[in-house]
Design a binder for these strands. Structure first.
Length: 814
RNA sequence: GCCAGGGUGGCGGAAUUGGUAGACGCAGUGGAUUCAAAAUCCACCGGUGGCAACACUGUGGGGGUUCGAGUCCCCCCCCUGGUACCA
């Protein structure tokens, strides 16, 4: 390890200074400065403390925040805690420690660790989702959703574990057994709160286009929303006074529908099944009910199913086709029933083969004796006309046939063109204690929302948190809390025992940061107008779909209600990559490759830690930690210190004269490069430029004071403690934090001589130095004068000579 | 299977978007300093051949476009993330 520079003293000194002076306080109504809102995804404060992945994103946003301040922006850069959630509740069940206590401890650890890195958060805006002053407004937003008709109750199957007497989250169920104890888990319908996110599907999809997010994240959201255009077609059931609606994206293949399939949970299953098939169908439906969604897909290869004995009428040609029940059709998508076109759908093809059902080709171009032909771009329609020829799509391309069939369905009333989404409504309730209570009362047959003045509805303090045994949340045990007696009528109401999911608090925290202490409103509308939208949002890609989709949904609802001024909350989004262990594997306790940020800070200091986190590589990419790599950046900072500060802590002798030409050019090139790299979040190359700059300064006999000052200014966003300290030693009264970022002079970056490579047939043979924008003839003459060029052109005819000004010369000879 | 991103020295990574591949850092080698080591400083550092000048070769593999390709086009292989009977 290099000789220590006193980073521990320097860093604690400046961190204390920033704290005491509230250096990073964001000003709400400072309208003469442009605003910049930089947000980190706030962490769940786990018991394990911070790992090196957290500070990666925080370091990046901090560097940008500090840079933006130097650029004259009023920066909002806050931090808080997403502190509701399962681990604290499980810990409480095991140990008896109340979740609030454990959570407070964890937050203290996280805060200490985050502060040790010198991040420039406005700590006066710290928020905590478990704080009743915060969740009062989470509940208030829920009531807004409820009043708008976007929250409703439904019977939904949950993972019920009879042994544990509790409902489990999907991730707590492994292979149909509980993660803890390995007890069997069954699907049990329970009353749940749902949010109608599907009502916003189209807007959530189309508004993605204008966001400055990576294409891959946008695509994940698009896939999740899963819009598909098609038609709904009605198939009357023969001999019954009912019909089955199906959704299809391929109405062109209607003539090829040779059977139908309905999901085992379909409401008509019982009704249409003929007596002889009743037993088989019922047995199959029960078996399918036991399978979780996962099991169903695992068995995807082998199609299973049972014939109902009933027939449907294909509306296009009045042919009778059999109706089957199979779990390859999902009740949760479309209508829970499909028309099967085995010739042109892989799944239907497999099913038809398995049960020997007819396969009728209606699009030419494939070989249906081998596999389903699903290409939609190639081929032409065949076998697709009504008996009386009144309707025919024969010889059309499938895409044309889709449109024409759609029109026909509309005009005959046998169906209609429609759109379907994969997105489902959001299951919003959890049978847990440690979450926001849902502000709802029940009586025998109705639901009564609390009024705003009853908020917050606080969590009751339970002596001991334990499962209710019924599948309800532990709140069902809180008898005094549970029952509410109307003082005038004496009527007894029961509180909702479900709580909100962890997503709730994080759906709007970025709005509370704008006005965190407001007790009359969730946030002030004027402040919201000033600060929103979030200009940069940085966090892990694990939240690419759910958190971001849920938050966007709430934001749009709040927009419709007039509480926010933008349609989208997060204008620009960046996902930091993962930091891997030294072995290139994901860090985990079991692998023993976890790096503890506390140890890194203790050994090398926060400035080095920050610098290394960003020097490793591009922010978005995953990259492995390397202990000798951190030595490198540590040496860089040590060299800076040693070169300019003597043993007594005084600045060494500097020159007051103007920097020489080379130094001046490099100085201005660095201002440009480092600034551009910070804007583009390309921290690694910015740091590399700082290293080049310092290497040059160290090569000088006497360093011009001005050059060192510029260097420190550029270094400040990256390693602020050491930069401030040397800056102060230079005698400056003001702090670097709000020092203006230097301007560069483009004129100085224009060189007067350039080196050109001379190629012969595309291979570099010589290097020449000429004046900038030198004449083509001059360049060529000089090029031909080179020995090596002559060697390689000797005896050859010159066919072509390419001169790219200030770049390259290429002589083509044969 | 499908969607997205990515394969560059021993390692992390640069490369003005078609113009001298390997910046910067790590590791390594040689030297200076030291009684010695650590630290520090200087030099070298893709591969093959050569004492050297230099030559050939080289950005996952194969083909193509171009005066010129890490960069553009086509085919293939591998890795990472997402998703999965979505009709």
């Amino acid at each position: 390890m290099a000789e220590r520079y006193p980073f521990d003293q320097i860093e604690s000194k400046w961190q204390k200074h920033w704290d005491e002076n509230k250096t990073f306080k964001a000003l709400d109504h400072l309208t003469d400065k442009p605003k910049y809102y930089i947000l980190d995804m706030f962490p769940y404060p786990s018991g394990a403390g911070l790992h090196v992945g957290h500070p990666e994103g925080y370091t990046a946003t901090d560097m940008l925040a500090r840079y933006k301040r130097m650029r004259g922006f009023n920066v909002l850069h806050p931090m808080g805690w997403d502190a509701f959630g399962l681990p604290a509740e499980q810990y409480a069940i095991e140990t008896g420690t109340p979740p609030a206590i454990k959570t407070a401890e964890n937050i203290a650890t996280f805060k200490r660790q985050i502060k040790s890195l010198g991040f420039s958060y406005d700590w006066d805006r710290e928020i905590n989702t478990t704080d009743e002053a915060y969740y009062k407004w989470t509940q208030w937003i829920f009531l807004q959703l409820y009043k708008k008709g976007l929250a409703y109750e439904a019977e939904v199957a949950v993972n019920w574990c009879p042994e544990l007497g509790t409902v489990l989250a999907n991730e707590e169920v492994i292979n149909g057994k509980s993660e803890r104890g390995g007890h069997p888990v069954v699907r049990k319908p329970m009353r749940q709160w749902m949010l109608k996110i599907t009502e916003y599907a189209e807007r959530l999809l189309s508004d993605l286009d204008d966001l400055d997010w990576s294409e891959s994240i946008k695509d994940m959201q698009r896939n999740w929303i899963g819009k598909s255009e098609g038609a709904e077609v009605t198939f009357p059931v023969s001999g019954h006074d009912l019909s089955l609606d199906v959704f299809t994206t391929r109405p062109d293949t209607l003539f090829g529908a040779t059977y139908m399939v309905i999901a085992p949970e379909h409401p008509y299953v019982k009704e249409i099944t003929v007596t002889e098939q009743q037993a088989d169908v019922e047995a199959y439906a029960i078996k399918a009910g036991y399978k979780s969604d996962l099991d169903r897909t695992e068995l995807a290869k082998d199609k299973s199913g049972v014939f109902t004995g009933a027939y449907a009428v294909n509306p296009v040609n009045d042919e009778l086709i059999p109706i089957w029940v199979s779990d390859y059709v999902l009740m949760s998508y479309g209508t829970g029933a499909i028309m099967a076109v085995p010739a042109h759908d892989t799944r239907d093809y497999e099913f038809a083969k398995a049960f020997d059902l007819p396969i009728l080709e209606v699009v030419s171009g494939g070989d249906i004796s081998v596999e389903a032909f699903t290409q939609i771009e190639d081929g032409f329609m065949i076998n697709s006309a009504t008996a009386d020829r009144s309707f025919s799509i024969n010889d059309l391309k499938p895409s044309e046939a889709i449109d024409k069939t759609g029109e026909w369905l509309e005009s005959t009333g046998k169906g209609h063109v429609t759109v379907n989404y994969k997105l489902r409504d959001w299951l919003f309730s959890r049978q847990r204690y440690w979450g926001e209570p849902i502000p709802i009362l029940h009586d025998e047959n109705s639901v009564i929302p609390l009024s705003d003045s009853d908020l917050p509805l606080t969590l009751p303090v339970l002596e001991r948190i334990k499962p209710s045994g019924t599948g309800e949340s532990p709140l069902a045990n809180a008898k005094e809390w549970l029952n509410v007696v109307d003082p005038t009528t004496g009527k007894v109401y029961v509180r909702e025992t479900n709580t909100m999911p962890q997503w709730a608090g994080s759906c709007w925290y970025y709005l509370r940061f704008i006005d965190p202490h407001n007790s009359d409103q969730a946030w002030d509308l004027e402040k919201e107008k000033y600060w929103m939208p979030v200009d940069l949002y940085v966090g892990g890609a694990e939240h690419a779909v759910l958190h971001l989709l849920y938050a966007r949904f709430w934001h749009k609802v709040l927009f419709d209600l007039g509480y926010v001024s933008t349609t989208e909350p997060f204008q620009k989004l960046v996902n930091q990559g993962m930091i891997l262990g030294m072995d290139g594997e994901k860090m985990s306790k079991s692998r023993g490759n976890v790096i503890n940020p506390d140890e890194v800070v203790a050994q090398y200091g926060a400035d080095t830690m920050r610098l290394y986190e960003m020097f490793m590589g591009p922010l978005e990419r995953s990259k492995p930690w390397n202990t000798s790599g951190i030595e490198g950046v540590y040496r860089f900072l040590s060299r800076l210190w040693r070169h300019f500060v003597d043993e007594n802590g005084n600045i060494v002798e500097l020159s007051d004269v103007k920097p020489d030409k080379e130094t001046l050019t490099l100085m201005h090139a660095s201002i440009k490069k480092v600034g551009n790299d910070l804007e583009g979040l390309a921290f690694n190359t910015g740091i590399s430029q700082l290293m080049i700059f310092l290497n040059h300064l160290r090569s000088l006999e006497l360093v011009p004071k001005q050059a060192l000052e510029v260097f420190l200014t550029l270094l400040n966003p990256f390693s602020p403690h050491i930069a401030e300290e040397i800056w102060q030693l230079l005698g400056h009264e003001n702090e670097l934090v709000y020092t203006k970022w230097p301007e560069y002079d483009e004129q100085l970056l224009v060189k007067d001589m350039v080196k050109l490579a001379v190629q012969v047939n595309g291979k570099v043979r010589a290097q020449i130095e000429v004046e900038v924008d030198a004449d083509k003839d001059v360049i060529l003459k000089l090029a031909h004068d080179q020995n090596s060029v002559q060697q390689h052109t000797e005896g050859k005819t010159i066919i072509k000579e390419i001169v790219v000004p200030n770049r390259i010369v290429n002589i083509v000879a044969k």
